[in-house]
Design a protein around this nucleic acid. Structure first.
Length: 272
DNA sequence: AGTGCGGCCTGTCCGC
DNA sequence: TGCGGACAGGCCGCAC
């Protein structure tokens, strides 16, 4: 389940290998991801040189002189740099093959991800145009989120996970950062005070920055771009710890479903 | 406009 | 042991 740190780690992992490389062909074995892989993707990308590898939220952008390809890893997507002759496995849906004999291989068992053509102005693409600020940018600060949350009745956890509020805060980091800030996940976003938002913003930035620094995390589905197992580097205080003692007060961690997603919190440390 | 929820998909886990 | 069903989750797109 790549969260933002995993996506950023992937970006950093593939960038030096593909920047400046010319694309020979795009080989698609299975078009049915979250959205169909565009049938003209090979046409768009063939003979183009990768000029940049950037990230917006959890979307990766491969920039060429003609425009950008956009990749989302969904839940179980991975990108690896391989020798193009390596035989594909069952869930290896697409290869971007380079003139130098290497390929960028996209694997995604659950097919929640996407590989799309985003054109010349990718930020104007429908999937990117509405996105909120990057969590590690200056635009994401206490004043911004406080102002944006006023009058909102939505639970703070769902508000945080809404990509219009801020990008890149997934289910794990939403629970973890609310725990760090001592905020009850059910509390209406509009009722969170400015000082408490200050703690929350700080918690989000710290947790994400630390995870990126440690090279991404994760539980099971993340592999580093070279194919070796990734492993967790941030300490999980509440996520996936239902009924286990809170690390601060030993109260059993509670789990409940919020908007169809599991939320974990300490009923004592996050009373309100 | 804000909010809530269905649905996509398959590997893993649990109970019978 | 083998099998079936529940569950996990990012996030769009729709319905209210």
């Amino acid at each position: 389940m790549p969260e933002l740190p995993e996506v950023e780690t992937t970006r950093r992992g593939i960038e030096p290998h593909i920047t400046g490389q010319r694309i020979a062909a795009v080989e698609t074995r299975n078009h049915q991801l979250r959205w169909p892989i565009p049938s003209n993707l090979d046409q768009q990308l063939a003979r183009q040189v990768i000029r940049s590898v950037t990230r917006r939220g959890k979307y990766l952008l491969l920039g060429t002189d003609k425009g950008s390809a956009m990749i989302h890893l969904g839940m179980t997507g991975t990108l690896r740099i391989i020798d193009a002759t390596e035989p594909p496995g069952a869930h290896d849906h697409i290869d971007i093959v380079f003139d130098n004999g290497m390929a960028l291989r996209y694997r995604d068992p659950r097919k929640f991800g996407a590989v799309l053509w985003a054109g010349e102005n990718p930020y104007e693409h429908k999937l990117l145009s509405h996105l909120g600020p990057e969590p590690l940018s200056e635009q994401f600060d206490t004043a911004y989120i406080h102002a944006r949350s006023r009058q909102r009745t939505q639970a703070i956890k769902q508000f945080l996970m809404d990509s219009k509020t801020v990008v890149g805060v997934g289910n794990i980091y939403a629970s973890e950062s609310l725990y760090r800030a001592g905020i009850n996940p059910k509390l209406a976003a509009g009722k969170v005070s400015k000082p408490r938002f200050e703690k929350l913003v700080q918690a989000i930035k710290e947790v994400l920055a630390h995870a990126i620094e440690c090279g991404g995390t994760t539980l099971k589905d993340f592999n580093h771009t070279d194919g070796t197992e990734g492993y967790f580097s941030i300490e999980l205080n509440v996520y996936d710890r239902a009924d286990e003692p809170c690390k601060q007060c030993e109260t059993p961690i509670k789990q409940f479903v919020q908007g169809g997603r599991s939320t974990y919190f300490c009923p004592n440390c996050q009373k309100r």
